[in-house]
Write a protein that binds this DNA or RNA. Structure first.
Length: 592
RNA sequence: GGUCCGGUAGCUCAGUUGAAUAGAGCAACAGCCUUCUAAGCUGUGGGUCAUUGGUUUGAAUCCAAUCCGGAUCACCA
């Protein structure tokens, strides 16, 4: 953005000289010139018409001439309907190009800020699904982007490991499990435990059906089903620290964690620390009592503790039940407190679906009322739900897209595509599986990350994700083409060097202008917590490079100087692909 | 009902601190491989930016109202 700042100050000076008027930098609007017009940057001159007392066109021409006089990097300008399009000298852009570092480009200066970002948040009674995949991909990519933008970032997970749900799996296992284990059955641990959750539902419905035939109303039957009663008892025993129940709970949760870890690894996400709800759900109580003492919470006659948020436009919320046990928000208070002890963060980002918008508003307000130092830094990165063609995913109806299945399908599809293509990929047999994995995952990750997190996603499992157009594989492919050029050049003993380039074609200049933007894109993506910004930029860069590639040869450039110029461009474009895709958690195959 | 989020091409999405003729991809059609990887490139067709009104030199973008979709408003998590 250096150039735009420079241009702004020149505009201010020129307006002052021309019209003896002082204008504020904030009214100057400088855009990237759209491709259909000549120039690289455009100054919008409508706001100056007031001080020039002339038409925007006349003002633009006078301003353009003044800038041409005062600046030594402006080559020429043209005016269209009040828009002043400015072209800079090729020498300027070549200077920009060679000053783009080939290493650590777009790693911005340290901000000194510490950020904790939470994503994942699985329940331990069943395997991960597409919704978790979206959280994890958004969380992981956002963490990378924030880090590149100069922040100290800590990635954490929260495991919802207690409560009625896991007890359902436990009860069903006791009834029908016969001491089986995931190892014996050769099933991934989380799926193994999830199967008993499904089993619970089956038994439950059966028992409710039997009671219904005895003439009991459904609502009542659901509470009288023997397996439900057993589950409630199980939960009570868990809360009473019954050793047998605790042992079973731990055993089954550990199976689940083994399964989860496998999925994290496949997906390429990781965590610095995992918080278990069971470790902290009691700790939130201390904060609640603290709030009572500070008079920011109040106690009702029955002993339950509440916070009144009506003056903030919300309702009254319960923080502690009448029997003194915690509710959902109590444990989030406890975890937040613990997290601050661990990291003393300036900002806490929670990557959680938008169905919890209300919850996080409450959490932030409650922490602010308690005067916690990290309260203002709480930010809910709210993402839209993932829909299927037939509507919302529903575990009860079995329409949930399983994370492991999805990853496998993507990789298999990539494999089938490559095997069916006539192209001979010149890679060793033992590296092929890795390539299929890289491509399949890239299709999945890019598909999810290119969409603004706020928006809902429509996912159609029947149409396997595309590998053409605005996709991850398209960008990988563009990268691989560049690498192929470099391999060819290496064979000829080519040595890159800085020659004195003269002129630029518009396709070349366009690439340099785009490369110059990259650090600003990172900054913008970090400020907006939006991996989609990075994805869209990289796609645009790939598209622009392919246009250039189709029109001009690098290895057979018109001259030695052009060869070196184009190598310098291509090398930096490839670096940005690797860096940008890396932020999204996507790998770059050297050939494909 | 209150609150929040969304509605842009047949489909999936960009564009929303106001700015030129609203852009991509997919799908359809027509071209381009003796030349660095055709997963590519070029072109054609496709739009009441949900609707109406307002602010402005200028509105997909800001404001108001309405319609449609979703979420949420539990001593569930």
């Amino acid at each position: 953005m250096k150039l735009e700042e420079l241009l702004k100050s020149e505009v201010i000076a020129a307006i002052n000289k021309l019209y003896s008027a002082n204008i504020d930098a904030s009214i100057i609007k400088i855009d990237k010139t759209p491709p259909e017009f000549e120039g690289e940057f455009t100054v919008v001159t409508f706001p100056f018409a007031k001080v020039s007392k002339k038409s925007p066109d006349a003002t633009a021409i006078e301003l353009g001439n003044a800038l041409l006089q005062s600046s030594n990097i402006i080559l020429k300008f043209n005016v269209v309907k009040g828009f002043l399009n400015i072209s800079f000298k090729d020498a300027y852009w070549i200077d920009v190009l060679i000053n783009i570092p080939v290493k650590n480009y777009a790693n911005l200066n340290a901000t000194g800020k510490k950020i904790v970002i939470e994503y994942g948040g699985p329940n331990t009674n069943k395997p991960l699904h597409l919704g978790h995949v979206r959280t994890m991909l958004i969380g992981y990519a956002t963490a990378n982007i924030l880090e590149a933008a100069g922040n100290e970032v800590h990635k954490v997970n929260i495991l919802n490991d207690r409560g009625i749900a896991i007890c359902k799996s436990m009860v069903a296992y006791l009834r029908t499990g016969n001491d089986k284990t995931p190892q014996l059955e050769n099933i991934k641990g989380d799926h193994f435990v999830g199967n008993y959750y499904v089993e619970y539902q089956k038994i439950f419905e059966q028992e409710v059906g039997v009671l219904a035939m005895e003439g009991i109303a459904t609502e009542e039957a659901e509470k009288k089903a023997p397996i439900y009663i057993e589950t409630v008892e199980m939960l009570q025993k868990w809360e009473a620290h019954d050793p047998e129940v605790l042992a079973l709970w731990e055993k089954m949760n550990n199976w689940v964690y083994e399964g989860f870890n496998e999925t994290y690894k496949k997906l390429g996400v990781d965590f610095e620390k995992e918080y278990k709800e069971s470790d902290y759900y009691l700790k939130g109580k201390e904060s609640v009592i603290d709030g009572l003492n500070k008079n920011v919470f109040f106690k009702k006659e029955d002993g339950s503790v509440w916070v009144d948020l009506t003056s903030d436009g919300l309702d009254q919320k319960v923080l502690l039940r009448a029997d003194g046990t915690s509710v959902y928000i109590t444990q989030d208070m406890g975890v937040a407190e613990e997290r601050y002890k661990d990291f003393a963060m300036d900002k806490s980002i929670y990557v959680v679906a938008n169905e919890q918008d209300y919850h996080f508003k409450v959490l932030k307000l409650v922490m602010q009322k308690l005067g916690e130092p990290y309260a203002d830094g709480i930010f809910h990165l709210s993402y839209g739900m993932v829909d299927l063609p037939e509507g919302k995913m529903k575990s009860r109806e079995g329409t949930v897209v399983d994370a492991d299945d999805l990853i496998d399908v993507m990789i298999t599809d990539a494999k089938e595509f490559l095997e069916a293509s006539e192209k001979k990929i010149d890679i060793p047999e033992n590296e092929k599986d890795n390539l299929y994995r890289q491509i399949g995952l890239s299709a999945l990750k890019y598909f999810i990350l290119k969409v603004d997190p706020k928006k809902r996603i429509l996912f159609n499992p029947k149409e396997s994700i595309d590998l053409h157009g605005n996709t991850g594989p398209f960008i990988q492919y563009t990268y691989a083409r560049i690498q192929s050029i470099f391999r060819k050049l290496d064979e000829t003993g080519f040595q890159p060097k800085d020659t004195t380039f003269n002129t630029l074609l518009s396709d070349e200049k366009e690439l340099i202008v785009l490369l110059d933007h990259y650090p600003d894109i990172i900054k913008f993506a970090a400020e907006n917590y939006s991996p989609a910004e990075v994805a869209n930029y990289i796609y645009h860069l790939a598209k622009t490079f392919n246009k250039f590639y189709a029109g001009h040869s690098i290895t057979k450039a018109e001259s030695e100087e052009k060869l070196h110029l184009r190598v310098a461009i291509a090398y930096r474009v490839a670096n940005v692909f690797r860096h940008g895709l890396g932020l999204l958690g996507i790998e770059c195959p050297e050939r494909m």
